[in-house]
Simulated assay, not measured.
Amino acid sequence: MIRPLQATDAPDVLALLSWMDDAPEREVFAPDARDEHELRSECEDRVCLVAEGLDGAVQAYCGLAPFRDGLVLEGPLGEGDLPGLVARALERAEGLPVYAFAARDNLAAREALETCGFTPMHTTDFYAARVADLARHARVPEGYAVTDHLAPAAYRALYRAAEDAWAERLDWTDAELQAHFARDDVRLVALTRQGQPVGFAELELNAAEARADLTYLAVHPAERGQRLGRVLLALAAAEAAAHPELRTLRARAHDHARPARALYAHAGLTHCRSVVTYLRDDTEGEA
């Protein structure tokens, strides 16, 4: 039976989240909460469904949360009739685009998503290495300087020149950009030449996981071919090394981003996981 999540289901959903955490191949987009109070708060005012087995025990979870221009599917997480659970959640999507994310090796979840009309958009590969191994190569090339700040207009210009598809950042206001880089867990490492920015790397520091995430790396097209990507990677690692609790640096690249994938491989990062991004958009083709 598929029904709305109840407060008394929190322990069962937390058990499903723990089950997912224990095996990378079960990964899907899921609630961040890992205790009952946080889970109830996170699921408040959201579409959250569970599937019961014949014995009445919760077998699977699925939900919808606001995301970008539409919604994101949480799950499907668990076992049993996953396509049926996803289909019931989609009935509550109100025609909005719905994104979903699943580990490449999570075949059960991916089959459920594709059965329900989700289309794979791309695969994101994640790479990791020890911070200390990368940081020891940090240097600023002759003729360049490093800074931890860029004016919003300069940031946007370089971001736009990098021709990346992650274009929603271009819609941020000056205040939103400044607030982002003022966060305690965010760092910017930018290279300039003759006072002009030529590339930057962004980090998010995750002390709880002892990890720094390289969320973005950009080099101006006119400056490519000079190994500045590897320079920025090492400088970002040196920034992470200033925080002794951070031991691992993790980077990501979409399947079409061949230069980034080559950069990480040549720098000694090891592939550690892959996540497939899906979209179901019933609005496509509408006038």
Rank of each mutant, 00 (worst) to 15 (best):
Asp184Ala: 13
Ala222His: 14
Arg224Asp: 09
Asp185Gln: 11
Tyr216His: 14
Ala179Leu: 14
Thr248Ala: 03
Arg224Cys: 09
Ala201Asp: 04
Glu204Gln: 14
Arg136Val: 15
Ala157Trp: 01
Leu134Trp: 00
Ala190Gly: 08
Ala238Tyr: 01
Arg227Tyr: 07
Val198His: 05
Phe181His: 14
Leu232His: 03
Ala201Gln: 06
Gly225Pro: 07
Arg230Tyr: 05
Asp148Ser: 12
Asp133Lys: 10
Ala138Phe: 04
Glu223Cys: 14
Leu214Gly: 11
Val189Glu: 06
Val219Gly: 01
Asp185Glu: 15
Leu203Arg: 04
Leu249Gln: 02
Arg156Gln: 04
Ala165Cys: 06
Arg136Gly: 09
Arg211Tyr: 00
Pro221Ala: 06
Ala157Leu: 06
Arg250His: 09
Val186Asp: 12
Asp164Pro: 00
Leu150Lys: 03
Ala175Pro: 02
Phe200Gln: 05
Ala182Pro: 13
Ala175Met: 01
Ala128Cys: 05
Leu158Arg: 15
Pro197Val: 03
Ala241His: 00
Ala154Thr: 01
Gly225Phe: 00
Gln194Glu: 13
Leu246Gln: 08
Ala210Leu: 03
Tyr144Thr: 11
Arg130Val: 14
Arg211Ile: 01
Leu228Pro: 07
Pro152Ala: 13
Phe126Arg: 14
Glu142Ser: 08
Leu203Tyr: 04
Leu228Ser: 09
Asp213Tyr: 11
Leu232Ala: 07
Gly195Ala: 05
Thr215Asp: 15
Arg183Lys: 07
Tyr216Ile: 12
Arg247Glu: 06
Ala161Met: 04
Leu205Ser: 05
Pro152Glu: 14
Ala135Gly: 10
Gln196Asn: 02
Ala154Pro: 05
Pro221Lys: 04
Ala212Gln: 02
Arg136Glu: 15
Arg224Met: 04
Gln226Gly: 12
Arg247Trp: 00
Pro152Arg: 07
Leu217Asp: 12
Glu239Gln: 14
Phe126Ser: 14
Ala242Cys: 10
Ala218Trp: 00
Glu239Ile: 02
Ala135Asp: 07
Arg193Pro: 10
Arg156Thr: 03
Arg227Asp: 15
Tyr144Asn: 06
Leu191Arg: 02
His180Ile: 05
Leu191Lys: 04
Glu176Ser: 12
Ala182Thr: 13
Asp185Trp: 03
Ala167Ile: 15
Glu204Cys: 12
Leu150Trp: 02
Asn206Pro: 08
Arg183Ala: 13
Ala201Lys: 01
Leu177Asp: 02
Ala236Ile: 07
Arg139Ile: 04
Arg136Met: 10
Ala175Glu: 10
Tyr155Gln: 03
Ala135Phe: 03
Leu249Trp: 00
Pro244Gly: 02
Ala218Pro: 03
Arg160Cys: 09
Glu142Ala: 11
Ala210Gly: 11
Pro244Met: 07
Val231Lys: 00
Ala242His: 09
Asp185Thr: 02
Arg160Tyr: 04
Val186Lys: 02
Leu246Ser: 08
Tyr216Arg: 11
Glu223Leu: 13
Ala153Gly: 01
Ala151Cys: 07
Ala167His: 14
Asp185Tyr: 09
His137Thr: 13
Glu142Tyr: 02
Ala234Gly: 12
